[in-house]
Lab assay of single mutants.
Amino acid sequence: TETYKYDDKREAEKAAEEFRRRGITVTVEERNGTWVLESK
């Protein structure tokens, strides 16, 4: 599991889209005002 942090929800979702395009499952969730993207 890799974790990436973003200040902006849009950025996180854009990154998530890129991962999914490569066939990687990711989750995006907000933690304490930071958007956390996790690849499984």
Score class of each variant (00 low, 15 high):
residue 2 E to D: 10
residue 15 A to C: 06
residue 6 Y to L: 02
residue 22 R to K: 12
residue 19 F to E: 03
residue 37 L to H: 01
residue 11 E to M: 09
residue 11 E to N: 06
residue 24 I to T: 04
residue 17 E to K: 06
residue 34 T to K: 15
residue 34 T to Y: 15
residue 31 R to L: 09
residue 26 V to H: 02
residue 30 E to A: 06
residue 15 A to Q: 07
residue 16 A to V: 05
residue 9 K to S: 05
residue 23 G to D: 03
residue 5 K to I: 15
residue 39 S to W: 15
residue 13 E to T: 05
residue 16 A to P: 00
residue 6 Y to T: 02
residue 24 I to G: 05
residue 8 D to S: 15
residue 3 T to R: 11
residue 7 D to V: 12
residue 10 R to Q: 13
residue 2 E to N: 13
residue 3 T to W: 12
residue 28 V to G: 00
residue 31 R to D: 07
residue 19 F to V: 03
residue 20 R to D: 04
residue 35 W to S: 01
residue 25 T to W: 15
residue 30 E to G: 03
residue 22 R to V: 09
residue 14 K to N: 08
residue 10 R to V: 13
residue 6 Y to E: 01
residue 10 R to P: 04
residue 21 R to I: 09
residue 31 R to M: 08
residue 31 R to K: 10
residue 23 G to L: 01
residue 26 V to Q: 00
residue 12 A to I: 01
residue 23 G to V: 00
residue 17 E to P: 00
residue 12 A to F: 01
residue 23 G to N: 03
residue 36 V to H: 08
residue 22 R to P: 03
residue 4 Y to G: 06
residue 10 R to C: 09
residue 10 R to L: 12
residue 24 I to D: 05
residue 40 K to A: 12
residue 5 K to S: 13
residue 2 E to M: 14
residue 32 N to L: 05
residue 8 D to Y: 05
residue 31 R to H: 10
residue 21 R to C: 08
residue 32 N to E: 10
residue 12 A to Y: 02
residue 31 R to V: 12
residue 3 T to S: 11
residue 5 K to F: 15
residue 13 E to Y: 11
residue 21 R to Y: 06
residue 30 E to R: 08
residue 34 T to E: 12
residue 19 F to R: 03
residue 36 V to S: 03
residue 23 G to T: 00
residue 21 R to M: 09
residue 34 T to A: 12
residue 22 R to I: 08
residue 35 W to L: 01
residue 16 A to F: 03
residue 5 K to V: 15
residue 16 A to M: 07
residue 40 K to S: 13
residue 11 E to V: 06
residue 28 V to N: 00
residue 19 F to K: 03
residue 33 G to T: 02
residue 29 E to P: 00
residue 10 R to T: 11
residue 5 K to M: 13
residue 22 R to D: 05
residue 33 G to E: 03
residue 3 T to N: 09
residue 27 T to Y: 10
residue 7 D to Q: 13
residue 37 L to M: 04
residue 4 Y to I: 10
residue 23 G to H: 03
residue 3 T to Q: 11
residue 21 R to T: 05
residue 19 F to H: 04
residue 2 E to K: 12
residue 6 Y to H: 02
residue 35 W to G: 00
residue 26 V to C: 05
residue 38 E to N: 10
residue 27 T to H: 09
residue 39 S to L: 15
residue 40 K to I: 14
residue 14 K to P: 00
residue 37 L to K: 00
residue 12 A to V: 03
residue 17 E to D: 10
residue 3 T to I: 14
residue 12 A to M: 04
residue 9 K to C: 06
residue 20 R to W: 08
residue 24 I to V: 10
residue 15 A to H: 06
residue 18 E to V: 06
residue 28 V to R: 00
residue 1 T to A: 11
residue 2 E to W: 15
residue 16 A to T: 02
residue 22 R to M: 10
residue 1 T to L: 13
residue 2 E to S: 12
residue 1 T to C: 13
residue 22 R to C: 08
residue 31 R to S: 06
residue 28 V to K: 01
residue 39 S to F: 15
residue 34 T to L: 14
residue 12 A to P: 00
residue 15 A to R: 05
residue 13 E to G: 02
residue 11 E to K: 09
residue 31 R to F: 09
residue 36 V to G: 02
residue 36 V to D: 02
residue 29 E to F: 14
residue 27 T to K: 08
residue 21 R to D: 08
residue 15 A to W: 06
residue 8 D to W: 03
residue 4 Y to L: 11
residue 40 K to M: 12
residue 23 G to R: 01
residue 26 V to F: 07
residue 22 R to S: 05
residue 34 T to I: 15
residue 17 E to L: 08
residue 17 E to H: 04
residue 38 E to C: 13
residue 28 V to P: 02
residue 25 T to Y: 15
residue 15 A to V: 08
residue 8 D to H: 07
residue 36 V to L: 06
residue 14 K to H: 08
residue 12 A to Q: 01
residue 31 R to T: 05
residue 23 G to M: 01
residue 8 D to L: 06
residue 13 E to P: 00
residue 17 E to V: 05
residue 18 E to H: 07
residue 7 D to S: 14
residue 37 L to F: 03
residue 5 K to E: 13
residue 39 S to K: 14
residue 32 N to P: 01
residue 14 K to T: 08
residue 15 A to F: 04
residue 33 G to F: 02
residue 27 T to Q: 08
residue 5 K to Y: 15
residue 16 A to S: 03
residue 30 E to F: 15
residue 37 L to G: 00
residue 30 E to P: 04
residue 20 R to P: 01
residue 1 T to E: 09
